[in-house]
Amino acid sequence: MLIKDVHDFPGHIACDADSRSELVVLLEDDEGVFGVLDLDSPLPGRFDKADQAGIETLAAIYVAASSFED
């Protein structure tokens, strides 16, 4: 989720009172969601589609590296 201004997002729960924009990417494998990568900024509109694509790529690398057999 790419949220340009958290004050315009209904139901937003801020973990930081200074947060204005947010980028949230799920960490998900074959068994489901096992984590969330959540970036906050005090600047509205701080994150864009390029940031989202880059963080989604990093998340995919992390998920692939975390998936291993016992």
Score class of each variant (00 low, 15 high):
2 L>N: 08
42 P>I: 02
56 E>Y: 03
5 D>K: 14
55 I>G: 01
48 D>A: 05
3 I>G: 04
11 G>R: 09
63 V>M: 06
47 F>W: 03
50 A>P: 00
40 D>C: 04
26 L>I: 06
55 I>C: 09
36 V>M: 11
4 K>D: 10
44 P>N: 02
14 A>C: 14
66 S>Q: 12
29 D>E: 11
45 G>T: 04
64 A>C: 04
7 H>V: 00
49 K>F: 06
43 L>D: 11
61 I>L: 14
52 Q>P: 00
68 F>T: 09
12 H>A: 12
11 G>I: 06
6 V>F: 10
43 L>V: 12
67 S>Q: 14
15 C>H: 13
31 E>Y: 12
36 V>W: 03
64 A>D: 12
52 Q>K: 15
65 A>Q: 14
25 V>Y: 07
4 K>M: 02
33 V>G: 05
15 C>F: 15
47 F>A: 03
56 E>S: 10
56 E>I: 06
55 I>L: 15
17 A>L: 15
3 I>F: 08
18 D>H: 08
50 A>M: 09
51 D>T: 02
60 A>T: 07
11 G>F: 09
9 F>T: 02
33 V>Y: 01
42 P>V: 04
58 L>D: 00
19 S>M: 14
47 F>E: 00
41 S>V: 02
52 Q>L: 15
22 E>Q: 13
38 D>L: 07
43 L>A: 14
34 F>V: 01
17 A>G: 05
42 P>C: 10
46 R>N: 02
53 A>Y: 03
